[in-house]
């Protein structure tokens, strides 16, 4: 098992390097001189020379990559063109807000979807199953940026019970768990973001439950005289690892996939940061944010894969 974990970790290294190469290349696929895309338009000659030297733009591209990689590994993501601040300053503050949003969304999704999937899988083929499957299809088909707007229309514009945008009053960008107002701001983005995971987790749970119920051991349990409720406990236990894994994957996905929802609700997370960076063509911020989000995705996948293999060693991959 230890060898397997080590192997998986080793295997993640080339992927992480590949991801870093893609992020590094972003500056080069941008139209125009990569130097210009890293500097504000009104940069002085000194700044230009400094950046040129720091990034090694006079050197061949592979060398530039290693210079960049070295900086990134020491936590230097460069400076924002728009604000001039270090990318990391804004990035890590935003990261916390996105973690909060994504974790909340996944939790909401799980609690709803697991129950729905369980009921649907238990009555698979029946009318309840069809309704739940329909809900799941809508969940994965709905454009969540549109759902966000609809929610704003209903709850903020028409009913006026929830704040439309932001994280708290006065443009706050730090979440305070002791302030009810912050939770009110969190509610709509969280629910909006939970739609896709609801669809996916419902489908997974339904499939897992239906499949487990078809297995011989359930028949044995019934033959032993267990009540349906006790059987259901067995089914839940057996389907849990698979469902939790999907939930974890969804968390990783939402970390990078919350850009649209954050934009609608101006939630001060990484997605909002990205959106701002795109609008202002702030490439250092874009590059740094995407790198960090992708790394989080890689790490989540790796952790889930390892946890899953620990629970069920049959899942080992070569």
């Amino acid at each position: 098992m230890t060898a397997y974990i080590l192997r998986r970790l080793l295997y993640a290294i080339p992927i992480a390097l590949g991801v870093s190469i893609v992020c590094f290349a972003l500056v080069y696929i941008a139209p125009g001189d990569p130097l210009n895309s890293l500097l504000p338009e009104d940069a002085s000659a000194e700044t230009i020379a400094m950046v040129k030297k720091a990034y090694g733009f006079d050197k061949p591209i592979p060398v530039q990559y290693f210079i960049w990689l070295g900086k990134v590994l020491t936590g230097d993501f460069g400076h924002s063109i728009a604000s001039g601040r270090a990318v990391t300053d804004d990035l890590f503050k935003a990261l916390g807000n996105t973690v909060l949003l994504a974790a909340g969304a996944v939790m909401v999704a799980f609690s709803l979807a697991f129950v729905m999937g369980l009921v649907a899988g238990y009555h698979s083929g029946g009318p309840v199953d069809r309704v739940v499957t329909g809900v799941a299809v809508i969940g994965v088909s709905i454009p969540n940026y549109w759902l966000g707007i609809v929610m704003v229309i209903i709850f903020a514009v028409e009913l006026n019970v929830l704040p439309a945008t932001g994280m708290g009053p006065r443009g706050s960008d730090t979440f305070n768990f002791w302030e009810w107002n912050h939770f009110r701001h969190l509610l709509m983005p969280m629910v909006t973001l939970s739609m896709i995971p609801i669809g996916i987790i419902t489908r997974t749970t339904r499939a897992a439950v239906a499949e487990i119920l078809n297995q011989d051991f359930v028949e044995t349990l019934r033959a032993k005289g267990l009540s349906e409720r006790e059987i259901l406990i067995h089914v839940v236990k057996n389907s849990m690892p698979q469902v939790l894994a999907v939930m974890g994957l969804q968390f990783g996905y939402l970390m990078g996939g919350s850009i649209l929802v954050e934009t609608i609700f101006t939630w001060p997370g990484t997605g909002f940061l990205l959106n701002k960076a795109i609008l202002t063509r702030d490439l250092p911020v874009l590059q740094g944010t995407i790198l960090v989000l992708a790394m989080i995705f890689v790490a989540t996948n790796l952790v889930i894969d390892l946890l899953q293999t620990m629970v069920d060693p049959r899942l080992k991959r070569g």
């Binding site: 992927i15 992480a16 590949g18 992020c23 972003l26 696929i29 990078g256 996939g257 874009l286 996948n301």
Partner: peptide, 24 residues
């Protein structure tokens, strides 16, 4: 497949945003 794995390591919307964001 290793090359594919690298692109697989990005959430889909993030990759789309990254590439089109950088290219304009």
């Amino acid at each position: 497949m290793r090359m594919v794995d690298v692109f697989y390591a990005f959430p889909s919307i993030l990759l789309a945003v990254a590439i089109s964001g950088a290219m304009g």
